[in-house]
């Protein structure tokens, strides 16, 4: 086998297969979605609202997809309920070391669409549709969608809502 900076040559093989690498640094702009990402860095969940359609997007878009007009930002509640969920035991290449992890679509009172996030805490198999969840935020922020995640809301015996303790980035 012959190695060079450009790859590996498996001598004598037919067909000839080489290893090839490809790396790119993007200057990715969140552009019109930026207020949402600066929002989660400050512990806020921002949605957008179309005043004309009276429609609230829990995952923001700067223009309404129903009438085409510009929407306005509004602050979502931090508590919602699980609309649907899954627990992943496999994932794409970049996320395989994070398995198992659970994904949920969250529904909020007063919003017409949902929000995709990770659910942290409950054992796989104990997650249920309708379960109350509350948002937590990663500090320091990484300016990615994973800066927000959800944990179950547990009711104390007095009926007060007690969210589970916050987790650090490493526990996600």
């Amino acid at each position: 086998m012959h190695r060079t900076a450009g790859g590996t040559f498996n001598g004598g093989s037919d067909p000839l297969i080489i290893r090839d690498y490809y790396e790119i640094e993007y200057r990715h702009s969140y552009a019109q979605d930026s207020p949402f990402f600066t929002g989660i860095a400050q512990g806020k969940l921002l949605g957008t609202e179309c005043k004309r359609c009276i429609f609230r997007f829990a995952t923001p878009r700067l223009h309404c997809n129903r009438c085409g007009r510009r929407t306005r930002w509004f602050e979502l509640p931090l508590e919602g309920n699980i609309h649907t969920f899954t627990t992943c035991y496999q994932a794409g290449e970049l996320f395989r070391n994070e398995t198992p992890f659970s994904l949920i679509l969250v529904e909020f009172k007063g919003a017409d669409t949902l929000f995709l996030s990770r659910l942290v805490g409950p054992e796989p198999g104990t997650i249920r549709i309708g379960m109350a969840v509350t948002a937590r935020f990663v500090t320091p922020p990484q300016f990615r969608i994973t800066d927000v995640y959800f944990v179950p809301v547990h009711r104390s015996t007095r009926g007060n809502r007690v969210p589970r303790a916050s987790l650090t980035k490493n526990e996600l």
Binding site: F85, L103, L116, I145
Partner: peptide
Amino acid sequence: TNFDYPLGGFYTAYYAMMITRHMH
């Protein structure tokens, strides 16, 4: 790639959530 991909990078997860709701 802003809102969905960085949570797991995995299409099976999206279909899993769809059928979980279908079951419900």
